[in-house]
Nucleic acid binder design. Structure first.
Length: 242
DNA sequence: GCAAAGATTTGCT
DNA sequence: GCAAATCTTTGCC
């Protein structure tokens, strides 16, 4: 089989899929790549394979942030597909969503877990930064601004590469995503954070559907609809391991 | 203007 | 297995 031309542009994730029904988009996002371009927060490119997502569909979905209509927080959900929607939960964790369907219908897919493929070290550093474990050294008198001086992170429990982004808050932390990313176009190859399609020929994977996590307040049927989709058997799925 | 809960993660009991 | 950490957004007075 011929080697792929390395100069070829990365396979973009098609916006047309995100513009379609949200459950179809969610299914298609499994296996796709979440890509973080190199920047100040991490010197290397970070890439992860999406293995767990949840769909939030329409104003009628009582588990969705769109349930109370457009607000300052959720406004981007009512906009065009492909935009990032990032919010803060529990006052400390960020969650990354991909906006789906056509404006003004509000819908999005929450990226709950990815399998690291590139840049695991940068992901570890970003997690430490997000959790405040590695802090900038205190300014010493007039010699301020030595941004490279960092207090080493205290010892912490070992985390396997596959578990670095095994949860929605961890995905955002590992990829240095926060609310400032809300509204950026995830289908634009120039965006610092973007989606890419899985390489052609990558083998297919089994998918399972389960109820969504942590939305019991929504009541039925919303609490039970199987709108959480996972790649069967992935070591990077959210939740505590046995 | 204030009180309550949240699309989570972690560490300790 | 349970509770703390932490702050924005929403709901009600």
């Amino acid at each position: 089989m011929p080697a792929q031309d390395p100069r070829r542009a990365p396979p973009l994730f098609p916006r047309s899929i995100l513009a379609g029904p949200t459950l179809d988009a969610a299914r298609a996002l499994l296996g796709a790549r979440l890509v973080r371009a190199p920047d100040d927060s991490g010197g290397t490119r970070r890439v992860g394979r999406i293995v767990e997502v949840e769909a939030y569909i329409g104003e009628e979905d009582r588990a969705s942030h769109a349930r109370m209509g457009p607000t300052a927080r959720n406004g981007v959900m009512f906009g065009p597909p492909g935009a990032a929607y990032v919010y803060l939960v529990y006052g400390m964790h960020h969650c990354l969503n991909v906006v789906t369907e056509h404006a003004p219908r509000p819908a999005a897919v929450l990226i709950r877990a990815v399998e690291p493929l590139e840049g695991a070290d940068a992901m570890r550093a970003a997690r430490d930064a997000a959790s405040g474990r590695a802090r900038p050294a205190p300014a010493a008198g007039e010699a301020r601004g030595t941004a490279s001086a960092m207090i080493p992170a205290p010892a912490r429990r070992y985390v396997a590469d596959a578990r670095l982004a095994a949860g929605p808050g961890l995905v955002a932390a590992a990829f240095s995503v926060d609310r400032s990313h809300t509204g950026i176009d995830l289908c634009d190859p120039a965006s610092p954070l973007r989606l890419e399609a899985a390489p052609a020929g990558e083998r297919t994977w089994a998918v399972e559907a389960t109820p969504r996590i942590g939305i019991g307040y929504a009541g039925e049927p919303w609490a039970s609809v199987p709108w959480r989709l996972i790649v069967t058997g992935s070591p990077a799925l959210s939740g505590r391991r046995r």
